[in-house]
Amino acid sequence: MEHELTHSDAAHPTHHITQPKVYYIVYCWLILLMALTIGASYVNMGGGLNNLVAMTIAVIKAVLVVLFFMQVKSGTRLTWMWAAIGFIWLIFLFGTLGDYVTRNWISVTGW
């Protein structure tokens, strides 16, 4: 049958329980990454690269928290979608930067 006549969008609604071992491992990674980000901030790689490294590490930490602590990894497709959508819309919001980047570009006479 193509459409299951149930209330849910999800195919497998049974609840998944993450084991404590996973939490501990993720926690260790988080602490490690935090140490790394502090360390990296004292190494001068040139402003841009430093920022990139710091933000990449922060994003990795956030993803770890979202996937494991917040159990999105074992979540349904719907949970995935809603977990992702906020971060996607942040990109739209940060489109505002486009204005600030282009403000000092060459202007057209009479504008």
């Binding site: 204005d99 282009t102 504008w111």
Partner: peptide, 21 residues
């Protein structure tokens, strides 16, 4: 609808290039 908000700011000081987009 989320990608057009800048059209309220064509004359308030927004960059011209952003206004075009």
């Amino acid at each position: 609808g989320f990608l057009v908000w800048g059209h309220h700011m064509f004359v308030t000081g927004q960059s011209m290039y952003t206004s075009m987009v």
